[in-house]
Structure formats: C-alpha cells, structure tokens
Simulated scan of single mutants.
Amino acid sequence: MGRGARHRLLSERGWLIHSVSGTGAPAGTPGVDPESLIPGGGGGTAAVHYHEALAEIRKGTLRSVYLVFGEEGFLVEELYRALRAAVVRPETADFNFHVLEPGPDQIGQALRLAQTQPFFAERRLVVVKECPAIVPRRRGGPEEEAPADGGDADLLRYLEAPVPTTVLLFLATAVDARRKVTRALMAAGAAVECQPLKPEDAAMWVQRRAESQGKRLGTQAAHLLVERVGTDLRLLAGELEKLVLYVGRAAEIRPRDVETMVASLAETEIYRLSDAVLRRERAQAVALLERLLGQVDHPLQLLSALAGRFRQLLLVKALAARRLPPREAAQRARMHPYAYGKMAELAAAADRDAIIRALKRLLEADLAIKSGFDPRITLETVVAELTGGEVASET
C-alpha cells in the first residue's frame, strides 16, 4: 500500500498520523512520534498535529492564527499555556493578553484588539473561546450555512491577511468544519484537534512524556500505568510525575515501580466513593458507584471500603476528643498526617452517634447481600441513605 493510500485509510478511521521520519509508517513503528497520535477529523482538514504545533511554539515559531479544539482538555490547556508563555511578557500582560468569552460582540472585540499594535511588546495574544461562528449549531437549527453577519464577514476578511503582531487563538470543544469561518480558520493558520486517546496510544504518549523528563518508561510499565490510571492524560501526567520523583536518579521506571506507587483505577475510585459518601455528595457518590459496580470483582468490596472509612472516621473523632497533637494522633491512627488532617475536618462536622448508625447500616447491607438480596439495589439504597443526612452535622 502506498503512502497516500495508507494516509487515506487512516484518515477514514478517524486518525491523522504524522511521521517524523517521513516514511508514513503505521502507529507503533520506529520514526512515529507517539504524541502525534491525536484523533483527527477525517480527511480534508488542514490539521497540524499537536506535537508539531507545540514544538513550533516552544521554538518561538509562531503563527498569526490558531484553532485548537477537542475534548482532551489537558492537550488544549498545554497548547494554550505554551502560547501564552511564548507571546505574553508578564510585565505587559495587562495590555497585551485578552480572553473573550461568547457574547454579542465577541468577534468585533477580537478584531479590534487584533488590529491594535501591542504595547511595549512584540506581540499580543487574543483568545476567543467557543466562538458561535465555528461551533456546531444546536439541534433544530438550519442545516445549510446561513449568510455571514457583519462580524463573520469582517473576520473572514481579517483571516485573508492577519496582523503579524497579533496571535489570534480560537478555543472550542467542538467545531463544525462545514461553516465558512471554520474553513477560513483552518486555511489561515494551524488547526489542532485534541481528542481523547485510546489505551495503546495513551501508553505511547506517556512513554514519550517520560522521555522528555529524562526517564525511560518501557512498554510493559507504560501499559500497566494506563491500565491502572486510565486514559485521562491529566491523571497520567500526575502519576508519571510521582513516579519520576520516586525513582530518583534511576534512568528507568520499571513495572514494579508502577505497582508500588500507583493505585489501580478501581482502588482510586473506591477512595473517591468513600470520600463522596462521607461528604454527603449524593450525585457524585451515585455516579462513582455506577462505574465501580462494573469494575470490582464483587460488590462486597465496596461495602468493605465504605465501612473501613467510617471506622476510620470514628477513630479520628475519638482521637480528636483527646486533644492529642496532630502528628501523634496521625501516628496512632496509622495515617499520613495530611490524610489525617482531611479526615479530622470531616470528623469535626460529624455526629458520633450518626457515624455509629451508618456503620450498623453498612453491616445490615453486608448481611443482606450475603443472604441473597440484590447487591446493586442494596448498595444504591445504602449510598442514598448515607448521603441524605445520615451523618448529620453537630452544628
């Protein structure tokens, strides 16, 4: 298969892959930059790949117009931060950095700022968020492109000859490539699509990120990290940062390092569920419960985790009543001082008798499930009860 045919096939599958070596090699082969594996919008768009745009910006090679869009907020924010660092000097930021939210005259304001010379700086940065001229129309709207209003027409004229001393950045979660302004933006500057990655591509992404931090992350360790954390790049970046600190001067992050330092996704979610229940955040607790029921081996794991947290809450409340120094109290509770402090805040607002009632209710649920009652219904009922005021404040 020739290079052009291969690119068309990949585009049809929703992926635009940039080959650093120019070989057009498929994903996962030498010469392909893992950070270039960002989902594209299919063939026909003038897309610039994420890593290419980021490298240009960090080298100081700036374009006059950028369109950055997609649902992977971590990548969008990283490009945004890189552009701001490259364009805006802190001492003149008040005069040369502008963020415009959607509004009646958003395009007009953006153009007036874009056509104004920067104040004691080489460039100004104008950020336009969720511009109505490029985002998809709501359902029920007209199918065909409506005639451009004055603002759209002015923007189209500006894009034909952008002001070189202004960087005009459009940010959106999604864009409609059929609209005139969207097409003009893609033609005038760099259109970078940032969508969530599949697990195999997230593993390649985190490997490259580890390399940029001076560490080698092997394939097995990378896949284990993604398996435990998921494909959320913000979470992956955070866990990688912990691993880099953990291994210290070692050149490689090994699978056993990941096993030691990174809790499984289910373990992390169980902790968040317990925290949501303790804080009586019903919507959050119910959403987490629904996800976890499909991840754990048995629902009793969730009940056990919840009971453990309530027992911990009762212990911390008892230690707080003795007015022990925080560090000594944390040692007695066998908790990290930071975790103890957070639990102490919850304990201070909780009634002791209500905590005991909650523990009894969890025990009843445990017995009910073991006696044959439906685990899902039992758990949903308990979580609803415990987040509905069962652990009432003493105030």
Rank of each mutant, 00 (worst) to 15 (best):
E72R: 06
L159C: 07
E52N: 14
V99T: 15
D201C: 13
E345T: 13
A114S: 13
A203E: 01
E328W: 04
Q213D: 07
G2Y: 00
E200W: 09
E91Y: 02
Y246Q: 06
P104L: 09
Y271H: 14
P132S: 05
R376L: 12
G103L: 10
T116P: 04
D176V: 01
G214D: 09
V192P: 15
K242V: 05
H336M: 09
L315E: 11
R376A: 15
A174Y: 04
L235H: 01
D275Q: 05
R84N: 01
K242G: 12
A344K: 08
A177M: 07
Y66M: 11
G214A: 13
A330C: 06
A177C: 02
A148D: 14
E200R: 11
A320S: 09
L367A: 07
S304Q: 06
V244L: 12
R376N: 14
E122Q: 02
E290L: 04
L363V: 14
R208I: 14
V383P: 08
L113N: 10
L359Y: 07
R123E: 02
S11H: 04
A354W: 02
A321L: 12
A285V: 09
R376Y: 12
A287V: 05
Y158D: 12
D351V: 06
P26C: 13
F120D: 02
G42M: 05
P118K: 08
T166Q: 10
A146M: 12
Y50P: 15
V277W: 05
G308F: 11
V32E: 11
E385A: 14
G388Y: 09
V316A: 05
R234G: 10
C194I: 00
A110C: 14
A210P: 04
A53K: 09
S274N: 12
L155R: 13
G140V: 12
Q312D: 13
Q213H: 14
E130V: 07
Q207P: 05
A203D: 04
A221K: 03
L300W: 03
F69N: 07
L236K: 00
P337R: 06
E72I: 06
V135T: 00
Q106G: 01
P337W: 01
A5V: 02
A285F: 03
R137I: 06
L67I: 02
A187G: 09
G24S: 01
K370G: 01
A47K: 05
A333Q: 10
T29M: 14
E200P: 04
E144N: 13
A46H: 13
A153R: 13
R138V: 15
E252M: 00
A368H: 11
D275L: 02
L156Q: 11
E72Q: 05
T92G: 01
A329N: 00
P104M: 08
E364G: 08
R139E: 10
G31S: 12
G22F: 07
E77K: 14
A344R: 12
Y66T: 10
A222M: 07
K180Q: 08
V175R: 04
